Simulated scan of single mutants.
Amino acid sequence: MTLRPALVVAGPTASGKSGLALAVAREFDGVVINADSMQVYDALPLLTARPSVEDVGAAPHRLYGILPPEEICSAARWGALAAVEMEAAWAAGKLPILTGGTGLYLRAVMEGLSPIPDIPEGVRAAARALLAEKGNATFHALLAGRDPEMAARLDPGNSQRLARAWEVLEATGRSLAQWQNEPREGGVAARWFTLVLDPERPRLYAQCESRFAAMMAAGALDEVREFESLRLAADLPITKALGRRELAAHLAGEMVLAAAITAAQQATRNYAKRQGTWFRHQLNASLTVTEQFSESLKATIFLKIRQHLLTA
């Protein structure tokens, strides 16, 4: 069977992924498919750096802003949605271009995921209620008492992953670590070309800071004010959007604005560092570009992509 071509444009936040994906889509008649776990929601478009109206008008964009903020989009759910969009792109004679910084999303569609059963909503709610009651440190200790292998892998500060490990253990009687050792299911068979943007840290960090400043100038504070008025559950994925917690703290009178901005920029830099580490060690790149995307890089990148597309 001849595999159909598909592209991935990955890298840390503020590395220029969206701009590169758009340029590739325009050059190669492609469809940009979102692979960012925050941009899938229809809330906080500024803070999550969703593509602009102009960008969306310049090339087809899919899976952006498709879910309300109160929903949970698992990697498996996103992988199924992405597979549908890839098939639609191929059927239309277009090139699917997946772009985003959520590594697990990309892994779901490129390699498949462990066959963990769906978790009943009651079990999920109970896990999150217990976490809220006990706090992260105590909850992590409770998890370690039942599932030491999985607890050892988890950062006690990562509420979402802690709750996930607990709910899987509760619902299935097996550790999430055991499930992760099972053969993976799903994924899309394609001739993948994976392009990773990995700029040097000083330049990437500077871009993180300047982009957040631009978000503030564009109205990010008002966006967070409106979002907070929805009074959504604090453990929903969208509440993890970079900058939301710090700006919400300012709106609640807990931080002066300058300190909130500084803290949000620091959180963004920390996240970009973690993403860069993940992509360097977990994603098998066809091409790594150690610079921020710019117009001067297009010729070299386009040549590599063209060679890939011509390879049967």
Rank of each mutant, 00 (worst) to 15 (best):
W166K: 09
Q160I: 02
Y205R: 14
P156Q: 00
D155M: 02
A171I: 07
L154W: 02
M216L: 14
A163F: 00
G186D: 11
R201H: 15
L162R: 01
R164W: 00
S210G: 08
A171F: 05
L204S: 09
A171G: 12
A171C: 07
L197N: 05
Q207D: 10
E209P: 07
D198N: 14
W166E: 13
P202N: 11
E200T: 12
D198E: 14
Q160K: 01
R184W: 06
W192F: 07
R191A: 06
A214Y: 05
R203A: 14
R161E: 06
Q207C: 10
A171T: 06
G157N: 01
M215E: 11
A152G: 09
R161K: 04
L176S: 06
M150D: 00
A190P: 10
E149K: 03
E200M: 14
R201V: 12
A213W: 07
P183Q: 10
Q178G: 05
W179Y: 13
T194K: 13
S210R: 15
T172I: 09
N181D: 14
R174S: 08
E182W: 01
A206V: 07
L197P: 01
A152W: 04
N158V: 00
D198C: 13
P156F: 01
Q207P: 05
E170D: 08
R164L: 08
G186M: 13
A163D: 02
Q160V: 02
E209M: 09
E149N: 00
E170V: 05
G186R: 11
E200N: 08
A189T: 10
R211V: 14
Q180M: 15
A163W: 02
A190W: 10
A177R: 11
T172E: 09
R203L: 15
L162D: 02
A165N: 04
A165Y: 00
M215L: 14
A163V: 02
N158R: 03
R164A: 03
Q207T: 06
N158I: 00
G187L: 10
A163P: 04
L162G: 02
E170N: 04
R203G: 06
R164I: 00
W166C: 05
Q178V: 13
Q207L: 11
F193G: 02
A189I: 09
A217W: 13
R184A: 13
A189S: 10
Q160D: 01
P202K: 11
P199N: 09
Q180G: 06
A171N: 12
A189V: 07
R191Q: 08
L204V: 08
